[in-house]
Structures are given as structure tokens and as C-alpha cells.
């Protein structure tokens, strides 16, 4: 008979580690949850996965009309559609990680009371499915980009820049920010229902505080410092700079965002793990 591992179940005190081994052991579950969410979301819709692309596209068009045409907020000389779309796709990835994870405990209460698996699998799966959506949207952005380049070459000057190389770093940064905030929110919603309401509102408010419908350069000088304190500000600006050559790329601000992201993520995981131990008794 092979040697079997012994697990000791006892009241845990303090920090119990990330349990990377446990998450690795359940990697298939992560994959299947991503797949399940994708299938479940689009099975009932007529247009199916096309919504992946249509959602941000609709929003882009609305923004183009309201903020571009009516409010006439400048877009740094970029075609409004490309300007808004670039900001929106990176933002929706953040928002997916943030709002999608805010109700992890309440949404999975039924399962958590019946089966054990590393609870972090759910938020991680959510980040991965967000990444899928982001990739598709990014591909379509490239499509819009080419359409503009080929058919309306006079519209304005925009160029992908070498800052593109930082995109593979920007994405984990966005994911960490969203996940970190989402985990914090999940801890709060597990304790108080009220925070469910706050999540949507907070995401909305943050979006307007982030240079998506306006470039950071349009923010009055005296407020720009405060606007840059939002860790997503430099990320969106850098992303747009990478794709379109306009915006700002500040190494310092990105470092700042990274520090905020790491702190949010670590503290988020810490409180998430603390909550997961107790929450089943109260859900």
C-alpha cells in the first residue's frame, strides 16, 4: 500500500500560506470554470460570443456620440472611435476582474457549503475568462486600426509605438489591480450586503476618474497630480500610447501603479484567505 499523506484539520491561526500546491492540483477545475462561464453566458443569446465584441463596440459608439460629438471633449487628434475603444477594452478587463470578483463568496455560497476546493480558484478563473474577452477585443481593435489606416489615412496621425513591448506587463498589472480590489470587495460583501451596491457605483466612479473619455493631458494642471494617483490612470494612458502613439508613458507612474497593485493583491489575498475560513459558517 502506498504511503498516503496525512492532513491535520485543526483551528488555524494567522497566515496559512497561499496554497499554491492546492491551486495547482485543481488547475483543471480552473480551466473548466472558465469554460463553463463562457458557455453559460453565451448559450442563451442569439448572437452568442459576438457580444464579446459588440458590448465594447456599442459603448465606444455611444461615447463617440456623447463625449466626442456633443461634449466635444478632445481626443488628442486621434479618431474618437480608436481613442475610446483602446481605453475601454483595457478598462473592461480591469472592471471584469474587479466587479466580477466582488461577490465571489455570496455567489458561490451554495457550493462553498458543500465542497472544499481552494476558494481562490474562483477569482482566478474569473480573471482568466476576462483575459479571453480582452484578447478578442484587442484583436478587433487591431481590425479597426487597420480599417482606419487603409481607408481614412488622412484622418490623423497615429502609430503603434515600441511601447507595445510593455503590453505583456501592463496586462498582469491590470489583472492584479482588478483582482486585488475585487478580493477586497468580496471580503466586504461577505460581511455586509451593502457593499454589493457599492461595487457597481465604485466601478462607475472609477471609470470616470480614469482617462478613458478624456486624455490625461486635458485634466487641468492643478488636478493632474490627483488624477494620476488613480493607479489605472497611467495604465490606460500607457496602453493608449502603445497602441496609438498619443498619451503619456510615465515610467514613474507605472512603478507607482505596480506597487499599489502588489499591495492590493497581497492584502486582498490575505483577507480573502482569512474570510474563506470563517465565512461558510455565516453565509
Amino acid at each position: 500500500m502506498q504511503k498516503q499523506s496525512i492532513t491535520v484539520l485543526k483551528p488555524s491561526a494567522g497566515w496559512t500560506g497561499f496554497d499554491f500546491a492546492g491551486i495547482w492540483q485543481y488547475r483543471d477545475l480552473l480551466y473548466l470554470l472558465v469554460r463553463r462561464d463562457f458557455l453559460a453566458q453565451y448559450k442563451q443569446t442569439i448572437l452568442g460570443p459576438a457580444w464579446f465584441v459588440l458590448q465594447p463596440l456599442f459603448l465606444t459608439v455611444v461615447f463617440t456620440l456623447i463625449f466626442g460629438k456633443f461634449a466635444q471633449i478632445p481626443t488628442e487628434g486621434l479618431p474618437p472611435l480608436l481613442f475610446y475603444n483602446s481605453g475601454l477594452i483595457i478598462w473592461s478587463y480591469f472592471s471584469h476582474c474587479f466587479t466580477g470578483n466582488a461577490s465571489v463568496f455570496t455567489a458561490n455560497a451554495g457550493i462553498y457549503q458543500k465542497v472544499y476546493y481552494p476558494r481562490l480558484i474562483n477569482p482566478l478563473a474569473n480573471c482568466v475568462s476576462g483575459l479571453l474577452g480582452f484578447s478578442v477585443q484587442a484583436l478587433f481593435f487591431v481590425g479597426y486600426f487597420c480599417v482606419y489606416k487603409i481607408f481614412i489615412p488622412t484622418a490623423s496621425h497615429f502609430e503603434m509605438t515600441s511601447a507595445m513591448l510593455t503590453i505583456p506587463l501592463l496586462i498582469p498589472l491590470v489583472a492584479s489591480l482588478g483582482l486585488g480590489m475585487g478580493l477586497w470587495m468580496s471580503v466586504l460583501t461577505a460581511k455586509y450586503r451593502d457593499f454589493n451596491q457599492i461595487t457597481g457605483f465604485l466601478a462607475q466612479a472609477l471609470m470616470y476618474a480614469t482617462p478613458i473619455i478624456y486624455p490625461l493631458s486635458e485634466v487641468p494642471e492643478q488636478y493632474r497630480f490627483w488624477a494620476s494617483l488613480n493607479p489605472m490612470a497611467s495604465v490606460v494612458e500607457s496602453f493608449r500610447f502603445a497602441l496609438l502613439g498619443k498619451g503619456s508613458f510615465s515610467f514613474h507612474l507605472l512603478c507607482y501603479s505596480t506597487i499599489v497593485a502588489v499591495l492590493l493583491l497581497l492584502s486582498g489575498i490575505y483577507f480573502f484567505k482569512r474570510t474563506e475560513r470563517r465565512v461558510v459558517d455565516y453565509l
Binding site: 499523506s5 484539520l9 465542497v115
Partner: peptide, 18 residues
Amino acid sequence: KILSRITEPSEGKVKVKG
């Protein structure tokens, strides 16, 4: 629930093999 790790004991311990 304790044996299946869904909830933790408040006191004492239980060893589970396999």
C-alpha cells in the same frame, strides 16, 4: 463538513489520511 475541510474545527484536531 469538518472532515471534508468545508469548515474548520473550533477546538481540537482530526487527522485524515489520504
